Each structure stands twice: as structure tokens, then as C-alpha cells.
Simulated scan of single mutants.
Amino acid sequence: MSLNNGKESKADKRHKKILRFFDHKDKLKVTELSSSLEVTEETIRRDLEILEEQNFLIRIRGGAIEKKSEGFETPALERERKYLPEKNAIAKKACSFIEEGEIIAIDASSTCLQIAKNIENKPLTVITNSIQVSIELAKKKKITVILTGGYLRHESMSLVGVSSDKVINDYHIDKFFISSAAIHSEWGISDSHEMQAKTKKRIADLSESIIVLADHSKFDQKSLVRWLPIENVRMVITDDALSKEQLDRYQEKVTEVIVVNPEI
């Protein structure tokens, strides 16, 4: 964005204002920007296109979300608060696919934490490397919880490392519910931390079915370590902010893509 090359144009000033809206919102709508900045929706769409080309944001249906930095893992408590309505709706849908008596795995992510909060108290075995997930499930006496062990990563409150892999090595897992830092239709599933990615990959190798839970901000992104081809995913559950073009692209790669409407 050429903000310092001489006198700022009206467009440059508008672009600055658009980016400042991200200080207060995770998702910007074309209609709201048009009203706030007193320009046409077509002008806003052109602005968002320019800002996307300059790597400041990602356009979605009806608006835009902020561009994330690759290779950085947001602390667990901060991630838990972000896109909470979307994550809650996605997790509730995921819970509908969990059957009594199954052995499932839940990874250490803010989205999958919502599964632990919403899951019915029924006979299940849950394998997890998440401290937060285990604490939530401890409230539900019918669920057997197996912690993988390993080294504690404070940023994600997860257990990783060789000892974690040894614990889970002989388990059979019916369904593995995961989220991830980034999802890409060609690059696949990737994460910002190598040991975290290795632990997820080991659990995935033992699982009959892999179900990805991801809000719209995770799509068309690449993070540091690729650990799972997109074709290995059985199902993706996401919110309704993806464009039709994005949905079509991922439906070509994944057996089933389910879209939910968050309660905002």
C-alpha cells in the first residue's frame, strides 16, 4: 500500500481506515464498510481486492477477514475467544457424528475444545493430547479419557514428543477430530509447530476416519509444517462464510463438506 509516497490519495486513506476496523472486528462486511465510509459497495469491493493483493486481508463472501501471519501460534486462551460462535456451531455439528461406545481422538485446538464442552455424557473413550480437553471431559463420568503424555507446550496446552507417540502407538481410533493452523486445497493440512504436527500425524495414522473442524479463516492458508494430505480427510465441517468457489474446490478433494450457520 503506497501510503508514504507523497500525498495520500482518497483510496489510500480509505484503505487505512478499512484495516483499522480489524482492531475491533475479526470479519468485515462490504455493506457495513460502504455505510461507514460513505462510498458504494463496488468501491469497497475494489478496495478489498487491492488490499488482498497487498497481502493485508483475505476476501470472503460478502466481506473480508484479516490475513494471518504464517508460522506463529496464537496462545491458547486468545485462540479460544476468536470466532467463538463459529467454533461452537461447528463443534455441535461434530458431536452429532459421535456414537456411543466409539473410541475417538480429539486434538489440542480451540475449536476441538468446544467438542469437549458440548459432547453428551455417554459411554465413550477419548484419546487426547490436550490438557484443556481432558479437564472438560473430567466433568462427564461416563467418558473414559486417555491422555497421551509427553512434553507440555504452554502456548497450546498440548502434550507432544516421542513419549506421546509411544503411548498411543497400539490404539485403534474410530474417528479423529482435528483443527489446524491452516488448510489448503493443494498443500493440505499444516501447522505452525513441528512437534505438534508430528503428534497429530501419528494419531491420524491410527485413525479410521479424520474429521476436520475449521472456521473460514483457516482456509486457503499454508503454515510451517505440512502433515496431512487433504485427500486423507473424510469430512470437513466449517461455517457459512466460505465462498461458493471455495466450497466447490474443497468438495472436489474431500468426501463430504458440511456448512453450519453460527448463532451470532
Results as ranks from 00 to 15, higher is better:
residue 1 M to K: 11
residue 9 S to M: 06
residue 11 A to C: 01
residue 13 K to C: 11
residue 21 F to G: 00
residue 26 D to I: 12
residue 32 E to M: 13
residue 35 S to F: 09
residue 36 S to T: 05
residue 37 L to E: 11
residue 40 T to D: 05
residue 44 I to L: 08
residue 45 R to V: 10
residue 45 R to D: 08
residue 45 R to Y: 02
residue 47 D to R: 00
residue 49 E to C: 10
residue 50 I to Q: 06
residue 53 E to P: 01
residue 54 Q to R: 12
residue 57 L to R: 07
residue 58 I to N: 15
residue 59 R to D: 07
residue 60 I to V: 13
residue 60 I to M: 06
residue 63 G to I: 02
residue 65 I to D: 03
residue 66 E to R: 14
residue 72 F to N: 09
residue 76 A to F: 13
residue 81 R to P: 03
residue 81 R to N: 15
residue 82 K to Q: 13
residue 85 P to N: 14
residue 86 E to M: 12
residue 86 E to Q: 15
residue 87 K to R: 14
residue 88 N to P: 09
residue 91 A to R: 03
residue 93 K to W: 06
residue 94 A to D: 03
residue 94 A to E: 00
residue 98 I to L: 04
residue 102 E to A: 01
residue 102 E to D: 05
residue 104 I to R: 08
residue 105 A to T: 01
residue 106 I to E: 05
residue 110 S to A: 09
residue 113 L to P: 06
residue 115 I to G: 02
residue 117 K to E: 06
residue 120 E to S: 11
residue 120 E to A: 12
residue 122 K to T: 12
residue 125 T to S: 08
residue 127 I to G: 04
residue 129 N to M: 13
residue 130 S to E: 02
residue 133 V to Y: 00
residue 136 E to T: 07
residue 136 E to R: 07
residue 137 L to Q: 02
residue 148 T to P: 06
residue 153 R to T: 10
residue 154 H to D: 07
residue 162 V to G: 11
residue 163 S to M: 14
residue 173 I to Q: 05
residue 174 D to G: 00
residue 174 D to M: 03
residue 178 I to P: 02
residue 178 I to L: 13
residue 181 A to Q: 00
residue 182 A to M: 08
residue 184 H to W: 05
residue 186 E to A: 11
residue 188 G to S: 12
residue 188 G to N: 09
residue 190 S to L: 05
residue 193 H to K: 11
residue 193 H to A: 05
residue 193 H to T: 06
residue 194 E to S: 09
residue 196 Q to P: 07
residue 197 A to S: 07
residue 197 A to C: 04
residue 199 T to G: 00
residue 199 T to I: 11
residue 200 K to M: 02
residue 203 I to M: 09
residue 204 A to H: 01
residue 206 L to D: 07
residue 209 S to V: 10
residue 210 I to W: 00
residue 211 I to C: 07
residue 215 D to F: 07
residue 215 D to T: 04
residue 222 K to S: 09
residue 225 V to L: 12
residue 227 W to E: 09
residue 228 L to Q: 13
residue 228 L to T: 02
residue 229 P to H: 09
residue 229 P to C: 10
residue 234 R to P: 06
residue 235 M to H: 02
residue 238 T to H: 04
residue 239 D to E: 11
residue 242 L to H: 12
residue 242 L to T: 08
residue 247 L to R: 15
residue 247 L to V: 15
residue 250 Y to G: 09
residue 254 V to P: 03
residue 256 E to S: 11
residue 257 V to G: 01
residue 259 V to M: 08
residue 259 V to A: 04
residue 264 I to K: 15
